[in-house]
Computed example of a mutant assay.
Amino acid sequence: MSMRIELFHGDITAQRLDAIVNAANSSLMGGGGVDGAIHRKGGPAILEECRRLRDAKYGRGLPTGQAVATTAGELPARWVIHTVGPVYAADSDRSELLRSCYRNSLAVADEIGASTVAFPLVSAGVYGWPKDDALRQAVETVRHSDTRVERARLMLFSTAELDLAFGMYPELVAGA
């Protein structure tokens, strides 16, 4: 089976898919950007499950590159898959950690039975990853992952990111 990869500009919290991926911080307690929006719009159930995960397994926080699922609370998706992206550093190649965010999120999607998943562009916001390389890492990792996920939607924050994505990957399905 071949996975369909879609490029979309829009709000990840509005996606009616099985799962959405949260570019979380290691505390799992919410934050800014995508993480804050997911926690705000999803309501207290997400934070409560994150607290239980911290208490039971991730006392020091979720390690960079790993992924874990919770309820989606009041969001239209069924689950939120939280992953912690690496902070970009020009003097250190952290690409494998970034790729592991996508691979591990897809592995968690397989574990929970999600066949449709929306991803943000992990680490390309406040973590400073150059958008063209973040996009390349995302698409190529998702494209070559061994998963049962049937459709992966990469949610892009701006129309400029969408234009960049279609310049790099014109064959991918468009949406807004």
Rank of each mutant, 00 (worst) to 15 (best):
R4L: 06
R4Y: 11
H9C: 15
D11A: 06
A14V: 15
A14K: 13
A14M: 13
Q15I: 15
R16F: 14
D18F: 12
I20Q: 03
A23V: 08
S27E: 14
L28Q: 02
G36Y: 06
H39M: 07
G42V: 04
L47A: 02
E48A: 14
E48I: 13
C50V: 12
R51M: 15
R52I: 12
R52V: 12
R54W: 02
G59M: 01
R60I: 04
G61P: 02
Q66V: 06
Q66H: 13
V68W: 00
A72R: 05
W79N: 02
I81E: 07
H82Q: 07
P86W: 01
Y88D: 10
A89I: 14
A89G: 10
A90H: 13
A90Q: 15
S92M: 15
D93I: 04
R94K: 10
L98F: 00
R99T: 08
R99A: 08
C101S: 02
R103E: 02
A107E: 10
A109S: 05
G113I: 05
A114E: 02
S115H: 13
T116K: 03
F119W: 05
S123Q: 05
V126A: 12
P130D: 07
K131M: 10
L135P: 00
V142I: 01
D146P: 10
T147R: 06
V149W: 11
E150W: 15
A152D: 02
R153S: 15
T159C: 14
D163E: 08
F166I: 15
F166V: 15
M168R: 07
M168A: 07
E171R: 12
V173G: 12
G175I: 08
G175D: 11
